[in-house]
Simulated scan of single mutants.
Amino acid sequence: MRHDKAAVVIELARRMAGSAEGLTLDDMARDLDVGRRTAERLRDAVLMLFPGAEEVSDPPTKRWRIRGGLSAFEQAPTTTELVELNRAALALRRADEPVRAAALESLERKIKSAVRSTTLNRLAPDLEALVRAETIAVQAGPRPTADESMLAAIRGAVLAERALGFIYSRPGAEARRRTVAPCGLMFGRANYLVAADLGTQKVQTFRLDRMSAVEPLDQTARPPAGFDLAAFANRSFGIYQDDVEDVALHVTAEGAAEARAWRWHPTQTLEDQPDGSVIVRFTASGMRELAWHLFTWGERVRILAPDRLKTVMADELAAAMRAHGDAQGR
Rank of each mutant, 00 (worst) to 15 (best):
L120V: 03
V8W: 03
L151E: 14
L249C: 02
R116E: 11
D272N: 09
A314R: 15
A91G: 15
A91D: 12
R330C: 00
D272S: 13
V131S: 04
P274V: 11
L32G: 06
H3E: 10
A53K: 05
F206Q: 04
D126E: 14
E21G: 01
A253F: 02
P125V: 05
S19W: 03
P77Y: 00
W64H: 01
M150F: 04
Q268Y: 06
R222F: 09
L229M: 10
G52M: 00
L309G: 07
P182A: 01
T179F: 08
S149G: 01
I279A: 07
P266V: 09
S71Q: 02
L309T: 07
E174T: 15
T179H: 13
H265K: 09
K5D: 14
M150A: 08
A231K: 11
T252K: 08
T79S: 08
G325L: 00
N191D: 15
S19V: 03
T24E: 05
R178W: 10
G165D: 11
L123P: 00
R222Y: 08
M1H: 13
A88Y: 05
H293R: 13
E108Q: 14
L47W: 00
A29Q: 00
R122T: 13
A29K: 00
G325W: 00
G165M: 12
A39S: 03
G298Y: 02
R207T: 10
R176E: 15
A91F: 09
R222M: 13
G141W: 08
A153Q: 10
G156Y: 09
A129M: 11
A114Y: 06
E299G: 02
R15S: 07
P274H: 10
G35N: 08
I111E: 05
V280K: 06
L120A: 12
M211D: 04
D147Q: 08
R170F: 01
Q219E: 15
V34L: 05
W262C: 13
E105T: 11
P144F: 09
N191T: 15
D307T: 09
Y240G: 07
E254K: 14
S19Q: 04
M211V: 06
A233C: 10
A6H: 11
N121S: 14
L82P: 01
I239W: 06
T24K: 04
F73L: 13
V244H: 05
G68V: 01
P77Q: 01
Y168H: 07
